[in-house]
Design a protein around this nucleic acid. Sequence first.
DNA 1: TTTTGTTTACGAATGATTTCGTAGCAAATG
DNA 2: CATTTGCTACGAAATCATTCGTAAACAAAA
Lengths: 130, 130
Amino acid sequence: MENIPSIKPTESELEILQILWQLGKATVRQVNNELSKMKEVGYTTTLKLLQIMHEKHIVSRTEEGRYHLYQAEIGEEQTQQLLLGKFVDATFRGSAMKLVMQALGNQEVSLDELDEIKKLIAEKEKNLNL
Amino acid sequence: MENIPSIKPTESELEILQILWQLGKATVRQVNNELSKMKEVGYTTTLKLLQIMHEKHIVSRTEEGRYHLYQAEIGEEQTQQLLLGKFVDATFRGSAMKLVMQALGNQEVSLDELDEIKKLIAEKEKNLNL
DNA sequence: TTTTGTTTACGAATGATTTCGTAGCAAATG
DNA sequence: CATTTGCTACGAAATCATTCGTAAACAAAA
């Protein structure tokens, strides 16, 4: 879980990563079960995806008796950071500000969450004033 | 420019949309010139992409003498909104809050921009308190 | 022991996206 | 007028991502 991710996981890979980030280690079966809650997907499809991700060093795996346990090799926050950067560039021409405004304006955010954001902003302002 | 976009433009299509949103109407040549500033790309590649986008009604075109003028048919903000929603779901499991925190924490945002965000938050709080 | 079920491995089909070569015109140039 | 230049149209190759069928290994169940 140390490597700084530099390659973008594909959409399907990201779905699997989300599951692995939540489960920690998991078998193909487990991943496939989770995936099946969201969409139709064959077992060997999930298997193949995990194998490809293993080749790419996106996940590691350990043999546990007869089956394999897979685990995310790239961190959740690091990956989010990477994807966020690319997304801001591609969609908001690099303006994180615009993205934040749109997210606050139109996505669901609660009062408590707004408070948290205010705190973070206060922090940032302190740092910028140094 | 009225249709609410429901289909996701591909990455290449989004690059072209960014250019069209900035230029308004543009010829293939103009789009290709802009694109060339960012990456190697053949003229006919750009042309083909614009033709495909035209088929999909992502762009409209008008004949202007010998050439065609292309124009975005889907709005910038609407498209950003659509993509943002999908991105939040795929990358932050639906939590716009997490996305905002990460964006504020790690992307470049200036003091003035932070002020703007504070204003927006104040607005939001007012609305939530009704 | 035989059958059934669960696993991994792997090749190949499918499908979507991107890239580009070629052709056909029309306008500009010599 | 002949040639060159610049445009659109279009098919097809190349690339990438996803899906799945089949086989082989092996354990568990009958």
